[in-house]
Amino acid sequence: MKRAGFATRWLPILLLLPQLAIIAVFFYWPAAHAVQSSFYLEDPFGFGSSFVGFDNYTHLAGNSEYGRIAKFTLLFTVLVTFFSLALALLLAVKADNVIRGAKAYRTLLMWVYAVAPPVAGFIGLLMFNQSWGPLAELAKSIGWDFKLGVNFGDTATAMVLVSVWKQVPVNFIFFLSGLQSIPKSVREAALIDAKSSFRRFWDVTFPLLAPTGFFLLIINITYALFDTFGVVDVLVKGEPGNNPMTLVYKVYVDGFRGNDIGGSSAQSVILMVLVLALTVFQFRLVERRIHYT
């Protein structure tokens, strides 16, 4: 609130109304509904539902398939987050170094931000096309018979690669902007204090970039968990079968295709709790971040 805010009564309510109405109908209602139906078992044919308490949750806990998917999701998240952060950091540091062509490099490295995940998945399909895809050919040349959509490991590899390709630009943009906001005087002081550029990076640049890194870590985990839906959906070609999938995809498959509303809702609620935990963790970091700047 500004100290000299307007005292008009009805106008702010009118201004807030559209926002509040939309989130009430399309956020709070569905979210509450998800929590509620996670305690019910719904008849697959839509004839009513019965209260089953925590059955849907305990069922999940004992479900080996769910456990396997959770493990894969964890591995997938770790790999995607690590590689997209590492690659982006490397490129951002180099892009920050060069003077000639800096702008061209920046553009070339960030445009993929605007590609939709499923379209990225579609391009992945082409790259790994079994009869002519360049990456499949490349794999073949080293004796790797790459079978996208058939072999679990191969599909998982493609998923990670495509997801990293799609995520590097966001990280690159943030890292570069973080690097460019390091005061020139600090760089110059480091230049006088340390001769080796490697030392300068680890002792000065990296710690100053840490807040950006923490922030991006959360962003990347959220991305790998949720935003990769399109990548997964396209790469498994809509046929889950034996293919790897993430927890979010499982929610969709069970609820939308399998009509297991209760089980799917319980999975949603588990994901909600996961996201909430991540966000709380992020807010903590943001608070810490303030001390850096």
Partner: peptide, 10 residues
């Protein structure tokens, strides 16, 4: 806090 993906069905 909650992306659309987790409340997609409801």
């Amino acid at each position: 806090l909650l992306p659309l993906e987790v409340r997609i069905l409801p």
